[in-house]
C-alpha cells in the first residue's frame, strides 16, 4: 500500500446541490477500488485558468489515500469515465502533510458550511457582444444612403 495524493476538479453544478455529497462521490470511487481514504477535504472553489467543457469555475477536492499500486490504474479509469469530475491528478507522496488532517477534520464539524459556488460556470454568452457590434454599423449604413439622397 502506497500513499497517494489526489486532486479532483468537480463540476460546480454537482457541488451546488450538496458539497458533502460531492465529497463522497470522490471518496466512494477511491474506496470502490480498494483504496483507503486518509483525508479528504474541499480545497478551493476558484475560477479556472481556461474553460473546460464550457465551465469557467470549478471546485477542487484534495484527498490523501492509501492504495495498492495495481489499484491506481482502476481508480484512474473510473475517474476518466466520471463526467462530473472535470480533471483529476493522482500523485504518489511519501508522507501525509500534518496540517492536512486538521483541515479535513475541521470540515467534519457540525455546522461547518461553505458558501455556494457563484453562478459563473455557465458557458459564456458569446453571441451577445457580437450582436451589439453588428447593430451599430447597420444603423450607420442605413443613415448614409438617406443623407446622400437628401443632398443629391
Amino acid at each position: 500500500m502506497n500513499l497517494y495524493e489526489g486532486m479532483f476538479l468537480l463540476d460546480n453544478q454537482v457541488v451546488r446541490a450538496d458539497w458533502k455529497s460531492a465529497k463522497n462521490l470522490v471518496a466512494d470511487l477511491v474506496k470502490k477500488n480498494g483504496g483507503e481514504v486518509s483525508t479528504i477535504r474541499r480545497w478551493d472553489e476558484r475560477r479556472l485558468a481556461y474553460a473546460i467543457r464550457g465551465r469557467r469555475r470549478g471546485t477542487y477536492y484534495l484527498t490523501y489515500f492509501k492504495a495498492a499500486p495495481e489499484a491506481i490504474t482502476a481508480i484512474r479509469h473510473d475517474f476518466e469515465l466520471e463526467e462530473r469530475v472535470l480533471r483529476y491528478l493522482v500523485l504518489r507522496v511519501e508522507t501525509l502533510p500534518e496540517t492536512e488532517v486538521e483541515l479535513a477534520k475541521a470540515e467534519l464539524v457540525e455546522g461547518y458550511t461553505v458558501p455556494p459556488p457563484p453562478s459563473d460556470d455557465e458557458p459564456l454568452p458569446v453571441e451577445e457582444p457580437v450582436a451589439v457590434v453588428e447593430e451599430a454599423p447597420a444603423e450607420i449604413v442605413e443613415e448614409v444612403p438617406s443623407e446622400a439622397g437628401t443632398e443629391a
Partner: peptide, 11 residues
Amino acid sequence: KRARHMALMPF
C-alpha cells in the same frame, strides 16, 4: 505543468 493540467495556471 501539473498546475496547468488542473486549470490552476494558464497554458
